[in-house]
Design a binder for these strands. Sequence first.
DNA 1: GACTCGGGGTCAGATTCTGACTTTAATTCA
DNA 2: TGAATTAAAGTCAGAATCTGACCCCGAGTC
Lengths: 220, 220
Amino acid sequence: MAGPEKRRKREREQRKKAILKSARKLFAERGFKPVTVASIAKKAELSKGAIYLYFNSKEEIYTQILLSDVEAFHKTMSQIFSRGETASQILYEFSDAYIDIFLNAREQFRTLMNFMLSAEHLNLSNGIRRQIIREMNKTISLIEKILQYGVDSGELNLKKQDMRRMRNALWGLLNGVISLHLFVGAESMREDRIRSNVREGLKTIIAGLTKTSKKKEAHV
Amino acid sequence: MAGPEKRRKREREQRKKAILKSARKLFAERGFKPVTVASIAKKAELSKGAIYLYFNSKEEIYTQILLSDVEAFHKTMSQIFSRGETASQILYEFSDAYIDIFLNAREQFRTLMNFMLSAEHLNLSNGIRRQIIREMNKTISLIEKILQYGVDSGELNLKKQDMRRMRNALWGLLNGVISLHLFVGAESMREDRIRSNVREGLKTIIAGLTKTSKKKEAHV
DNA sequence: GACTCGGGGTCAGATTCTGACTTTAATTCA
DNA sequence: TGAATTAAAGTCAGAATCTGACCCCGAGTC
C-alpha cells in the first residue's frame, strides 16, 4: 500500500475507534435509548453526519461495542481453564475473575448488564440480538464445561439432566449477588461483600456436589 | 468555538507540524536544493498537492523551519545573561551553551549552518533572507552585549571601535572550531576537542582583554 | 385527531486530500 | 547557440471526508 493510502486507512480506523470510545462511555452511563447520536458526535468532536460515514445506524454502534465487549469478556473467562486444577478451584477462580471484570471494567460490565436487563426493548434487529445472545451463551457454557470436567474427573457428582440447571444456578448466583450489591450497600464495602457472598454460596454448592457426600436421593 | 471546529483547527496544526518535522529532518540531512517537495510529502505520508494546502512554496517551508530554529536558538542563548557573574564567566557559559546546541540539536544546527554557508544560492526571496539574517544578528550581538557589560564593569579593556571586530572574532572562533571538527577528527573525540579548543582560545583572548594587563599600544 | 417536540437519518455544500498534469529551469548535446 | 531532455516545482479536477440545516416519524400533549 502506498504512503498516503496507508496513513488514511490508519486515520480512518483511529476515527472509528474514537467514536466507539465516546459511545461506549455514554452507553455505559445511560443505556441505549437516552443516548443521542448527536451526543456521541459531540463527545467525539464530530458532526452528526460524520458518524454515519463510519456506522450505518446508532444500533450498529451499540452492537459493535456490545459484541467486542462480549468477546473480550469471553476471552478473559476462557483463560481460567487450562491449568491443572480441580473443578472447584476453577469455579472459585472463574467467580473471582468475573467479579474482577465487574470491578475493573465497569463500563463494559454495565453495557453488558444493560443488554441483559432490557434486550427486548432495545429495538435491535432480531438477528443481531440472537448473535449477541449466542456469544454470551458461549461464556455461560464455560461453567458447564467446568462442571463436566468435575464430573469426568470424579470430583463432582451431578446428573446429566441437572447440569444445565446447576450451570444457570451458578451464573445466577454471580449476577444476582453483584446486582444486589450494585444498588444497595456502601461502595466501600461492596467488593468484600460480593466476594464473601459468592464464596459462601459456592462453598455450599460445591459441598453439595462433591462425591464424598455420598448420600443424595432426597428429591425436590 | 464549537466542538468539531476546534478539533479541525487542532488537527490542521498537527498536520502542519508533521510536515515541518519531516521537512526539518530532510533539510538537515541534505540542505535545501536536493530535498524535493515530493520527498517531504512522502515522509509526511501525504501527497504533494496536500503540502501546498499548508504552505505556498518549498521556500516557505524552509523559511519557517529556519526562523523557528533561529528563534529557539536565540531564546536559549539569551538565557545565559541575567546571572550576576563576570563577563568572562558569561563568555565561557555562552560558548558552552553554543556547543551544547550543536551537540544535542544537531538537526537545527545543521539547518542553520547550511543557511549561513550558502545563503546566496538558496534562492530565497531577498526579504526573507534579510529577515533571517537580522534574527541571527540578534544572537551574534549577544556577544557584543557581554563584551559591553565587561567594559562597563571595568573588567575588560576594549575600545569602542574594536568591539565589533572582537565580537566577530569570538563568533568566528566558535563556528570555526566546530566546523573544523565537524569534518575531521573522530566522532568520539569531537566534543572534548571542541570544548578544549574553544576554552583555550577564549582563555587567551580574555587574558588579552583584561585590564590588569595595562600595556597595550603595539598596533597592528 | 391535530399539534408539538425530540431525535434518527439525509444531503448539498465546504474542506481536505490525491496524483496526473503543466510549467519552469537547468543541463546536455549537436 | 539553441533544441532536446529531464527533473522538480507547482496546479487542478475529482475523490474522500466532514458539516449542519433539514426531513421525517413516532411519542407524548391537549
